[in-house]
């Protein structure tokens, strides 16, 4: 059996959870087995996970899991994995998943590959999986040789597939011990898709000259339903909030579309964005290194090009 931990922060299943279950179902098919989804704490519509491929949905409806503690989460997931004889345990490669994957590997005496980006190859019941390493500059292929495997799945690596049937969630209890972490507060930006989950990202750099110029970037993001990001110097000089900083020292993202505006494309910036499916670069300097990593490039003044691009997208949306 393949067990997938489906994250439901503040009671809502995440997009990453749908991706993980879709992936888990495909791994289960490769192994000739079934996929079970597990949720912890209060969760709306856990039955939905059936539509993404889980043939069984388990929920530990214990409100103490509404606060994240990697120790208790890992204990609960490992407990369910053991009781159900899971051969593969899958979590999302998110702040939550990354904090429990290593713990699960220790608890289950399992080999771990974190941040996998594609489906495994299966031979003799063993999984061989790929992930990007060296901050996107290379790909590594690993074979897990232990009887149980733990994988964490990179965001946007697979498209959620909701073609199945919903499955009534079954309530179970687990033995997860008592926690030693007390969550005091959770502060999130409402309204926007968080950067790691965003499918379209509009990002801007020092070429913007001044924080008061960001209106054109926000307008473009608004039209596209995109999330905004920025380069490091922009965050460092407080032109934009720190959570927008992408790159080696910021966060690494892999949206379907990354639009880089007035960003030179330094190697440390690319390290966080070079796994985007499609990259568009807008820069007035034809020699900007970013053009080497781009799929589409526009050599021109961003203050003219960005509003023009926004109008073109609006026109496209109106006619589609």
């Amino acid at each position: 059996m393949v067990l997938v931990f489906a994250e439901s922060p503040r009671g809502h299943l995440k997009k990453a959870a749908f991706e993980a279950v879709t992936y888990g179902k495909k791994v289960a098919d490769l192994l000739g087995t079934s996929c079970t989804a597990l949720t912890l704490g209060t969760v709306d519509q856990a039955a939905e996970l059936g539509r993404y491929g889980a043939s069984k949905v388990l929920n530990v409806a214990d409100a103490s899991f509404d606060q994240f503690d990697s120790q208790r989460f890992a204990a609960a997931i490992a407990d369910v994995a053991k009781n159900n004889g899971a051969k593969v345990v899958i979590v999302s490669h998110t702040s939550t998943g990354k904090s429990i994957a290593g713990r699960l590997a220790v608890r289950l005496d399992a080999g771990l590959v974190s941040g996998v980006s594609g489906l495994p190859e299966v031979s003799g019941g063993q999984l061989t999986v790929k992930k990007t390493v060296f901050s996107g500059k290379a790909i590594a292929e690993y074979r897990i040789t232990s009887p149980v495997s733990v994988l964490s799945l990179m965001g946007n690596a697979i498209k959620p597939d909701a073609s199945g049937q919903s499955v009534a969630a079954e309530n179970i209890s687990t033995n997860a011990g008592s926690g030693r972490i007390r969550v005091k507060d959770v502060r999130t930006q409402e309204g926007r898709v968080p950067l790691p989950e965003a499918e379209i990202v509009v990002s801007a750099g020092r070429g913007m000259k001044d924080p008061s110029n960001w209106g054109i970037v926000e307008d473009l993001a608004e039209t596209l339903g995109a999330t905004t990001a920025c380069s490091r110097p922009v965050a460092d000089s407080d032109w934009r909030p720190h959570h927008e900083h992408v790159g080696q020292t910021g966060i690494a993202i892999r949206p379907n579309l990354y639009i880089a505006i007035g960003i030179s494309g330094a190697i440390q910036h690319l390290a966080g964005v070079n796994n985007s499916k499609v990259i568009v670069v807008i820069n007035k300097d034809p020699e900007a290194p970013f053009f080497k990593a781009a799929d589409y490039g526009v050599v021109g003044d961003l203050f003219e090009v960005v509003p023009r691009l926004n109008e073109a997208f609006k026109k496209f949306k109106a006619s589609n």
Binding site: D109, A110, G111, L112, V113, T128, T132, V133, G136, K137, A138, I139, A140, E141, Y142, R143, I144, T145, S146, V281, F291, K292, A293, A294, D295, Y296, G297, V298, V299, G300, D301, E304, V305, R308, L309, E311, A312
Partner: peptide
């Protein structure tokens, strides 16, 4: 419990396609 099968470099990008800045 995990063996490295191999490392490789990502496939090279096809190269940038430049678009006329007047024609978004």
């Amino acid at each position: 419990q995990v063996e490295t099968v191999k490392f490789s470099l990502p496939p090279a990008k096809a190269g940038v396609k430049l678009v006329d800045p007047e024609n978004m």
